[in-house]
């Protein structure tokens, strides 16, 4: 505790730096993933390819990806942008799959009735499909929020500042309190962002109860009506 009190400024600053790394990555991965996920949902042939690519991407160890990216991006190894790109890629790998599932979860009947009512393709996407896919999308986003905040700390070993710097610094100087502070701060930050997601979700999608948004998948929606039990 004494370590924390005497280093509050440092911790506060690192939290801001950490947010500056993870929040853009989270938002970017969501924005990029939704159209890709929609493609995978809409065109069956693309689904296998896109989802396999995501699975491959996700299989790459983070540290290796951090090191392997600079030759491709032309950025320096210690550039925070390099780290943001890597985190975004991991986010995409997770959300694309959930986004595809999310669009799958919109019942065909609903989509057909929207078309029948006279929605244009674009209008139907924004007015019907996206909002209905929202709860499942949110569940994917929440996974990404937690993993991104945690992964961002890894950048510290190659010299990108974040809450992870508390781990490397604490390890080198043998200060246990510093490492524990880092762990606690990282978890709290993840929980705070997660909570923010839930709150935003509730505001934007008041029709979805928090219980339903937990589990995605098509079978969900159908079986609840179909099963007599």
């Amino acid at each position: 505790m004494t370590w924390l009190w005497s280093n509050l400024d440092l911790v506060g600053e690192l939290i801001l730096v950490h947010l500056a790394l993870s929040v853009p990555a989270i938002i970017l991965s969501l924005v990029i993933s939704v159209p890709i996920g929609w493609l995978a949902h809409r065109y069956r042939w693309s689904r296998g390819v896109l989802l396999s690519l995501c699975a491959l991407l996700y299989a790459i160890p983070s540290l290796a990806l951090f090191v392997a990216l600079p030759p491709i991006t032309g950025l320096g190894l210690r550039s925070p942008v390099n780290l943001v790109i890597a985190l975004t890629l991991y986010g995409i790998a997770v959300i694309v799959r959930t986004a595809a599932d999310a669009f799958d979860s919109v019942q065909p009947e609903v989509r057909q009735s929207a078309t029948a009512m006279g929605y244009s393709a674009a209008g139907r996407f924004w007015g019907v499909e996206l909002p209905l896919a929202g709860p499942v999308l949110l569940s994917g986003l929440r996974v990404v929020v937690v993993s991104t905040v945690s992964l961002a700390t890894v950048g510290a070993v190659i010299g990108v500042q974040s809450l992870g710097s508390l781990f490397t610094d604490g390890f080198q100087r043998g200060i246990q309190a510093e490492i524990i502070t880092g762990i606690v701060a990282t978890i709290l930050l993840a929980l705070a962002l997660d909570w923010l997601c839930v709150l935003t979700g509730r505001m934007l999608m008041p029709w979805s109860s928090p219980r339903r948004s937990r589990r995605p998948a098509l079978s969900d929606v159908r079986s609840i009506e179909a099963d007599p039990a």
Binding site: S150, T153, V157, L166, G182, T186
Partner: peptide, 11 residues
């Protein structure tokens, strides 16, 4: 899952 791996390792 929220545990930062690097934190656990260094600790």
């Amino acid at each position: 899952r929220a545990l930062p791996t690097l934190g656990v390792l260094t600790l």
